[in-house]
């Protein structure tokens, strides 16, 4: 998990291998989840992060003890990157007792407090005020923690997003808002959601710093993100960052993504940070097919073990449905 180089240093070979593995773990986790979904073993909604993994991996590298990630329902990537056990994540998708939250939340509601995974929110934009509240508590108690709040570009147009950002700006809270602009809010492209191309144009209104880039390289993403995180940590300076990214799958498993062309997807495949990191291993560090396959096989094995664990895990106890609604229900 720990980076072998600082965010600003050029990565050495071990570091490239490490981030490649971390991104690949998320991708293989989700591919196996996707298969389990088509087999009817996972139900409900399943929103895949495939294509966006570099963001979660870069973020996890920047987290210090007490820092928090608050994100959307597209949350598996952050959980795996932050070190939540894949088998417990998978068990949550299967609705099982050993799931991350005991099977009550499913795909959209991953929480693992001690790992800094503070949700997992399924009402678009509704988590921004909550994330601002975590940052408010950090400033109130002086705990030095930073809250990283992720949202899709589709969340930019709902009221709670504005109110959360506005209060964070007004009160100078230690928080970084990161818009993961994966180009589509379900099936609606950005140009039919808003007339601006650059979503960071709002940052000055909130007195936030801003940055905006296309996520093709995990190290660039980590370096530029670290600048905002450190300003939040040391100066209580909130930031608004827009990351141009791409999800290769539909909005959820029920979406065949017919609203985009094969050519568009092909262009994006070449920009995929995971693909580019693999290319770097091959071209810059002498990895051949066998070495790449060996890494991949080990990760597939880890994630298949997670599936096996999830299948074997029992359903929650019937009485569990009465627990945790109020504190005294325990």
């Amino acid at each position: 998990m720990t980076p072998t180089t600082s965010p600003t240093q050029a990565p050495d070979k071990d570091e490239v291998v490490r981030v490649f593995k971390e991104m690949l773990r998320i991708r293989r986790f989700e591919e196996l989840a996707s298969r389990a979904y088509t087999q009817g073993k996972i139900s409900g909604f399943l929103h895949l992060y495939i294509g966006q993994e570099a963001i979660a991996v870069a973020t996890a590298d920047l987290m210090k003890d007490g820092d928090r990630v608050v994100t959307t329902y597209r949350d598996h990537g952050f959980a795996v990157a932050l070190g939540c056990e894949p088998q417990r994540c998978m068990a949550e998708l299967f609705g099982k007792k050993d799931g991350l939250v005991g099977g009550v939340g499913g795909s959209m509601h991953f929480f693992d407090r001690d790992k800094g995974m503070w949700g997992g929110y399924a009402i678009v934009g509704g988590h921004l005020p909550v994330a601002a509240g975590h940052a408010f508590a950090s400033k109130y108690t002086g705990d030095g923690a930073v809250t990283l709040c992720f949202l899709g570009e589709g969340a930019m147009h709902i009221g709670a997003t504005h109110e959360g950002m506005h209060l964070a700006g007004l009160w100078k809270l230690p928080i970084v808002f990161v818009v993961e602009n994966n180009q589509y809010a379900m099936g609606t492209p950005l140009k039919r959601q808003t007339l601006v191309d650059d979503l960071t144009v709002r940052a000055p209104a909130y007195r936030m710093t801003s940055d905006r880039w296309e996520v093709t390289d995990v190290f660039e993403t980590r370096r530029r993100l670290s600048e905002a995180v450190e300003r939040a940590r040391t100066d209580n300076q909130p930031a608004l960052i827009e990351l141009l990214t791409y999800r290769f799958r539909g909005h959820s498993m029920s979406d065949p993504a017919k609203y985009r062309t094969k050519d568009e997807v092909e262009v994006q495949r070449k920009k995929d940070p995971l693909y580019r990191t693999e290319q770097s291993l091959r071209e810059d560090h002498g990895f051949g097919d066998d070495a790449i396959e060996a890494i991949d096989d080990a990760i597939v094995e880890e994630m298949q073990a997670a599936v096996d664990f999830a299948e074997a895990s029992p359903q929650p106890d019937p009485e569990h449905r009465f627990r945790n609604h109020l504190v005294e229900d325990d």
Binding site: G126, V130, A137
Partner: peptide
């Protein structure tokens, strides 16, 4: 001012800030 906090007119915002602060121990 730290403990008696005036807000702008933003009920969704400050109600949510309250939730987030409570989750973090306040």
């Amino acid at each position: 001012e730290q403990r008696v906090v005036d807000t702008p007119i933003a009920e969704a915002g400050f109600a949510g800030v309250g939730v987030g602060a409570a989750m973090a121990g306040l």
